[in-house]
Design a protein around this nucleic acid. Structure first.
Length: 103
DNA sequence: GCGGTGACGGTCG
DNA sequence: CCGACCGCCACCG
């Protein structure tokens, strides 16, 4: 396990329930500013039983980056279970659910 | 060690 | 508002 991944996971854990964060935001918090892709890799390599709320991480468009058959559907259900709503286009309102990091 | 790929982001049209 | 292009960089074969 690399320290970078650990930081990413730590950043993801800071996202409160019912809120969502973008890859770029997580990357910044993790100290990997501009390396949003690495965040994606880190989460993809993440196992289900790690306790990391990976479902709260979405792209800048407010949409689920995962393909529908790659777990995206599951992610959406998890978010809706937390109170996050999706519009007709399958997008989340970042203005309402976007997490504003506090320190 | 090289080249292609990707859970992305920002800009341009 | 939405789609297309380019840029960045770590990971995998």
């Amino acid at each position: 396990m690399s320290d970078s991944y650990d930081r990413i996971y730590a950043a993801v854990r800071r996202v409160p329930r019912g809120k969502v964060a973008t890859y770029g935001q997580i990357a910044t918090i993790a100290g990997l500013k501009g390396h949003a892709r690495q965040v994606g890799y880190a989460l993809h390599a993440l196992k289900a039983s790690t306790g990391v709320p990976w479902q709260r991480i979405i792209n800048a468009k407010g949409m689920i980056s995962l393909g529908p058959m790659r777990g995206g559907v599951s992610q959406r259900l998890l978010l809706e279970a937390e109170g996050v709503t999706f519009d007709a286009g399958g997008r989340v309102s970042l203005a309402k659910f976007g997490w504003k990091r506090r320190r």
